[in-house]
């Protein structure tokens, strides 16, 4: 990226968000990008190259994850931002919010075992590379998940469309990259861990790339997602 300055990332903070600081650390301190927090009441996204909707429990998520956050003032701007073709990544609660806001198809149901689940998973990215996965170099990625509602569901026709259009960005896999039900941590249909919108500029994923940016913490594979975004901007 010679000659190109750092990209500007905006991290949206809802009341109850908690991955905001982790995303900030990864992007600002490890990847040396220009990063700002965006409080949920703000409505000006001009100047950002990518908006991050981080994990957490927005508004406590007592009703249903993301069901209140999707009505926050900032969200109508995030929708416009995406319509303009700019990049939006929703992680964990961010994925749930994107689904609630209708920016991605499907829903995240409670895990099939009805327990919160924090563990490492392996992820396979298939099909033609998206702007979020171009740097993966055919690698199986290792990242953590941490959620109660990560069980991806979409009606059969939508699911078929997602698959036909290669919009499943990540699937839970074995370390070797095989897609098996034994390694599905939450009951997601087709082992789906992340999906893209039609235009492929919006990604929602349950695993946390920001928690996998240093070997010290167990994996640096998350950087490949961020670097793909930086490359695409």
């Amino acid at each position: 990226m010679a000659g190109k300055g750092p990209s500007r990332f905006g991290i949206v903070v809802f009341p109850g968000t908690w991955s905001d600081r982790d995303c900030f650390y990864a992007l600002a301190h490890i990847l040396k990008q220009d990063v700002r927090y965006i409080w949920h009441k703000e409505t000006d996204l001009s100047g950002y190259n990518c908006v991050v909707l981080p994990g957490g429990f927005s508004y406590g998520d007592y009703l249903r994850p993301g069901s209140i956050a999707c009505f926050s003032p900032v969200m109508s701007e995030v929708k416009r931002f995406a319509r303009e073709g700019r990049m939006v990544i929703g992680i964990c609660n961010g994925f749930q919010i994107l689904c609630e806001a209708g920016m991605l198809p499907g829903v995240l149901l409670p895990n099939c075992h009805l327990r919160y689940c924090c563990q490492w998973v392996y992820l396979k990215a298939e099909g033609p590379d998206s702007a979020f996965t171009s740097r993966r170099n055919a690698k199986v990625l290792r990242m953590p998940i941490s959620h109660y509602e990560g069980n991806y569901y979409a009606p059969p026709d939508i699911l078929e469309e997602l698959e036909a259009e290669h919009r499943v960005a990540f699937r839970y896999s074995t370390p070797e990259g095989r897609i098996e039900s034994e390694v599905n941590p939450n009951g997601s249909l087709n082992n789906i861990a992340g999906v893209l919108n039609k235009r492929r500029n919006v990604l929602g994923m349950m695993p946390h790339p920001e928690r996998a940016c240093e070997q010290l913490l167990g994996s640096a594979d998350g950087n490949l997602v961020w670097q793909s975004i930086m490359n695409a901007i």
């Binding site: 908690w18 991955s19 600081r21 982790d22 650390y25 990864a26 301190h29 994990g55 327990r115 919160y116 689940c117 924090c118 563990q119 953590p144 941490s146 946390h208 920001e210 928690r211 940016c213 240093e214 010290l216 913490l217």
Partner: peptide, 27 residues
């Protein structure tokens, strides 16, 4: 037990639960 707890948020957990003691780095 500990997979039901988020033990990684904060990106400091260098030694997760399950060892003699857990370790967190100070950024």
């Amino acid at each position: 037990v500990f997979t039901q707890y988020d033990h990684q948020v904060g990106v400091n957990t260098v030694v997760p639960p399950g060892s003699d003691a857990s370790c967190l780095r100070i950024k």
